[in-house]
């Protein structure tokens, strides 16, 4: 009996580790996303020198980040409460939420495909991507203190 209890609790532990913490996971992906966009934005604004290969690597990293953003896994029912700034609207309008994320991924892919050759071209791509950030945060995030 004792062994059974231990076995069950170990299973439960393993399961919770596998599910991890969707709130923490999505926040980590968002942090990474912001950092990459931040670096690209500095180049687009001529605050840092333009290096086409480095820029492309960063854009590809942004795409990898976006592709990892599995909404079903990261925003399961029940993850609207807790230490999160996700707006309840996400779960009320899941289709709309997914649509803005899809548009973001499409714009990131387009930027990778375009492989910007100078800071001006990058600026256009970063502008489109930045506008997607705003559109999503406008409706689907609530600022908390």
């Amino acid at each position: 009996m004792k062994k059974l209890v231990i076995a069950i609790s170990m299973l439960a532990l393993a399961a919770s580790a596998a599910f991890a913490d969707p709130i923490r996971d999505r926040q980590a992906l968002m942090k990474e996303r912001g950092k990459i966009v931040g670096g690209l934005s500095k180049v687009a604004k001529d605050e840092e020198p333009f290096d086409a290969a480095a820029v492309l690597t960063q854009l590809q990293a942004l795409q990898a980040n976006a592709e990892k953003f599995d909404i079903d896994a990261l925003f399961p029912k029940g993850s609207e409460s807790g230490d999160t700034t996700a707006a309840p609207k996400i779960w009320e309008d899941m289709a709309g939420f997914k649509a803005v994320e899809d548009k973001y991924l499409a714009d990131v892919k387009a930027a990778v495909a375009a492989a910007p050759a100078d800071a001006d071209a990058l600026k256009t791509q970063v502008g489109a991507i930045g506008s997607d950030c705003g559109t999503c945060h406008q409706g689907y995030r609530i600022k908390k203190g």
Partner: peptide, 9 residues
């Protein structure tokens, strides 16, 4: 490199 949200957008 967070972005504006809510009504601030």
């Amino acid at each position: 490199f967070d972005s504006a949200g809510g009504a601030m957008v």
